[in-house]
């Protein structure tokens, strides 16, 4: 079959190229690694500092600690009103709801904007983009009044429900761009086969959009995990506090900040996001490239 020949041919060519350019590849790796170290320096410093006693963090600014104090982790975990995993669980609930909400609601809206023609499309699209252009600080008070009258303050609803209503319009736009990049022949042929819009959306577009969905999930996770302002305002009950709120409890700009425990818990707080990123990025490689076109 033609494809097999072609694949073999390409594979041979690739191998040939690789053999020729080994020094170049090493050079690329060297470049990538040193660049990575520069990128990572501040983070490495934070990691190193999380093992130093608070008193010496600013006296010995070097990377290598002279005395190890793993106690920061124990102390930080237990210093607050609740053990730290309590806040991680709260954050996880908010984040999980947000990810599911964004994936469903934004992809549906994106399908409509990318593939369907309907009355008012351009206007709605403009409104959608416009809705993310106002800084949060002027809409937070009206939002607070709204959620307060629904009796939603100190629940996770104000943080999650809007995601199920596709309020994060960035992700609609992101998925619109991805879907518009997909060849239209795909849904045309499905339509000829008698598929309705929902089936096309669910069976054809969504699977092909895996990279876009993974991107949306990753970003929703990170942005929600790090989001401070709305969580600060909507969650005043300390038992409902999320990770960013908990981290602030170590800070006292006028007095003594518990830097050691703060850095230790900041490192811990990076764990789930990084883990999710690692898991999610595997889906960045799947997509049309491997599923192929019928």
């Amino acid at each position: 079959m033609a494809t097999t020949d072609l694949t073999a041919q390409i594979a041979a060519r690739r191998k040939e190229r690789q053999r020729r350019s080994r020094p170049r590849r090493i050079l690329i790796h060297l470049g990538l690694i040193s660049f990575g170290l520069v990128m990572l320096y501040p983070l490495l410093w934070m990691l190193a500092s999380s093992f130093k006693p608070t008193e010496v963090i600013f006296r010995e600014p070097g990377l290598l600690p002279s005395a190890l104090a793993p106690g920061n982790y124990v102390e930080g975990w237990n210093a607050l009103r609740n053990p730290f995993h309590h806040y991680i669980i709260n954050s996880t609930i908010v984040v999980a709801g947000s990810v599911v909400g964004n994936l469903l609601a934004c992809s549906m809206a994106a399908y409509a904007f990318a593939r369907l023609t309907f009355f008012g499309k351009r206007t709605f699209f403009a409104i959608m983009l416009g809705s993310i252009m106002l800084p949060i600080h002027v809409v937070i008070v009206p939002q607070y009044i709204l959620f307060s009258s629904l009796d939603w303050i100190n629940t996770f609803y104000p943080l999650i429900v809007p995601k199920f209503l596709a309020v994060d319009a960035f992700f609609i736009f992101l998925m619109v761009q991805f879907i518009r990049g997909l060849p239209r022949e795909l849904d045309d042929s499905a339509r000829i086969d008698g598929c309705g819009h929902f089936r096309i959306y669910w069976k054809i577009i969504m699977p092909l959009c895996t990279p876009a969905l993974a991107t949306t999930a990753i970003f929703t996770f990170i942005w929600t995990w790090n989001d401070f302002f709305s969580q600060l305002v909507f969650l005043t009950d300390p038992d409902m506090a999320t990770v960013p709120l908990a981290l602030r409890q170590f800070v006292d700009s006028q007095g003594q900040t518990s830097w050691g425990p703060l850095f230790a818990m900041s490192v811990i707080a990076l764990g789930p996001v990084f883990g999710f990123f690692l898991a999610g990025q595997r889906y960045l490689v799947r997509g049309i490239a491997t599923t192929g076109i019928k």
């Binding site: 401070f228 600060l232 300390p238 602030r248 409890q249 800070v251 700009s253």
Partner: peptide, 12 residues
């Protein structure tokens, strides 16, 4: 209780 750090306190 309702507490946070100095800077965020006033926003809330």
């Amino acid at each position: 209780p309702d507490f946070t750090d100095w800077g965020s306190y006033w926003d809330r």
